[in-house]
Structures are given as structure tokens and as C-alpha cells.
Amino acid sequence: MNTHVVLGGNGSAGRATVAALIAKGLDVVSVSRTSAAPSGARSAVANLLDLAQTRAAVDRASVVYLAAGLPYSTKAWRAQWPVVMRNTIAAARDSGAHLVFLDNVYPYGQVDGPMTEQTPYRPTTGKGRLRLELIRMLQSATDGGFGATIVRSADFYGPGVATSVFNTFVIDNVVAGKPPVWMFDASHRHSMTFVPDLGEALALVGTTPAAQGRTWHAPTATPALTGEQLMLLATGGARPVRTMSRFTVRLGGLFVPTARETLELSYQNTSDYVFDSSAIERELGLVPTSYEEGIARSLKAARSGASAAAR
């Protein structure tokens, strides 16, 4: 059977990937630490830090999608991500499956100009160096005949994406009647990937043999807008919109570990952050959702969630 297994199927990117695969009429298994699964998918429970559980989850898979998330901590990533990657590679190889890995832009480091699939890896942070280590692990595995593809995303956002900074500080604030907030400097351009588009990209690459074995940038709207422009789209042009200073984030880091973890990547919000996805658009025909539509859909979902919670 042509079975597609999504590791991290209950996360934002995982759910979008599962939905895109189901829409293609495929047999889909959603793997997470709990038994819940998106509608239309079969559910499997596994701890990806355990090799035996990972092997059982991907048994007889034709394609495995590694879309899992880990706690946003360099210490946790250092301890857990290499184990997850080793286990996933071993399990996918045993099953004879192709592996599609969801990556981010951290390995590039700070880039002067648009980020493309040809941008060299020059990480400047602990998280970036760790992500590069994972890429090297994949490359070593493929040298031995194992098949793997990387799909890379910019900062992401979308309906119900709880782990998105944009959702948390812009979408949720607007729905709550508060001014939206941008990190550090809202005058720079900043690309963002709409999560449903990311799921479509992962599913398409996983089901298109000719697209496999290389790195792709997920479809991302152009032109990249400034933080201020993105906030004004969310408010319908209304002000005020606000910026959170480095001092405020540093102070918040004393109490909120996630805030502290963002500081090493502050360059992403103190210079232009432009993500080029023209290759996947041109070669595979994917069309990114505009920021206007993506933000409108995100606001609608957040308002619906807030209304349901109030009831």
C-alpha cells in the first residue's frame, strides 16, 4: 500500500501536510505522542526519541515526513534533535521509504539579500549550527543510497498556528482588541510562509518522484512586506502598531524561557529577511497565498476560536 506517514502529525505543519495528503486520496498515518489524528488519517502513537517506537510507526511506509517540533530551547534541541533524526533515518531506511524533512532558515545565518536554495550555510547561532548538523546527517545517509528531500520554510503563520510569533503577537492581539506587536524593528522586510501552503509543498514533493532528492523553498508570498505593513494588514490600516524592544525581550527572558531563546536570532528582525521560493513555483506550479488572504484567514480562525472559548 502507498502509505504516507507524517511524524509530528498533530503540529501545525504536520496537520497541514496530513490534510494535503488526504486531499490527494492517499493512505495517511499521523504520528504523535497522543492518539488524536486529523480527520481522515489513521493515528499512531510514538516517541521519536525511541528507535523501536519510531520503526513501528513508519513500518511499511512509502514516504515519511519529518514535521515534528521540539521544545524551543537550544539545550533541548542539542539533546533531542540528533536522536530524532538518527531514529527517523534508520526507521525510514528499514521501511524503504523516502524521507521528506521540514527545515527552517537557521542554517543560512544572516543573509544579505534574498535567501534561495543556493544560499550557503553560514550559521551564527547554536540553533543554526544544530540544524546544519541535521542536514549533514541527512547528506551522509543519502551518500549511502538513502532517499531524502528537504523542504525549507520561512517564519510561518496561519489559521490556528499556536507556535507562530506572528499569530501570537499580531493575530491574537488584534482579535483581543490590543495593538499588534513586532519584534525589534518593524521597518525591515520580512517573509512569512502560510502553513497551508507549506503542507501543500511537503505533500507535493512527497508524491512527485521527479521533485525528490533536492532542497526546496516552500511557496511564500512576494513581495516581502515590512513588519509594519504586515501589522497594518491585520488591523485594516488602524493604528497603533507597536514594536517590542530588545531590552523588553531580554527582560521578559528572565521569566519566559521562549523569549530568552529568541535573542540569538534577533538578526532576523533587525535586517531584511527575504525568502525566495521562485523555484518551487516555477518548477512544480505551486502558488503562494497572498499576505492579504493569509492574514484574513488567520484572523477569521482566531475569532472563531475566541468565540467558541467564550461560549
Results as ranks from 00 to 15, higher is better:
P179Y: 07
T235R: 10
S191P: 04
F101R: 00
A306F: 01
G96R: 09
N269M: 14
V174R: 02
I280T: 12
K75Q: 15
L198A: 09
R250G: 14
I89V: 14
T3G: 01
P107C: 02
T243M: 06
M137S: 13
R246W: 10
T289F: 00
N2E: 15
V105K: 00
P240A: 07
Y273C: 09
A306L: 12
L99G: 11
T168E: 14
A16V: 07
A16D: 11
V29A: 10
A46F: 01
W77Y: 14
L99C: 08
S12R: 12
I150K: 09
R33T: 14
A259W: 15
T88F: 08
V256W: 13
F184D: 07
G252R: 12
V181M: 14
E261P: 03
L21K: 07
F101E: 01
W77V: 11
H188Y: 14
G126D: 13
F166L: 05
T220P: 05
L49W: 00
A56R: 10
N173T: 05
P159R: 09
P257Q: 08
E200K: 15
P114K: 03
D197S: 04
T88C: 02
G145V: 11
A141P: 08
K127M: 02
S35M: 08
S62P: 04
K178C: 11
Y106L: 10
A68R: 07
V174L: 00
V18E: 07
L132C: 01
T222F: 10
I135P: 09
P288V: 04
T243S: 12
T125M: 06
D112A: 13
F169S: 11
P196M: 00
T226Y: 11
A306M: 12
T116I: 05
S266W: 05
R129Y: 02
S35E: 15
W81S: 13
G158K: 08
G96H: 01
M85K: 03
L102T: 12
V174N: 02
D27A: 13
A302E: 13
D155Y: 06
R129A: 06
H190K: 06
A162C: 01
E228D: 13
I280N: 01
A20C: 02
V165R: 11
A186V: 04
G158I: 03
T289W: 02
G9P: 07
L198W: 03
V45Y: 03
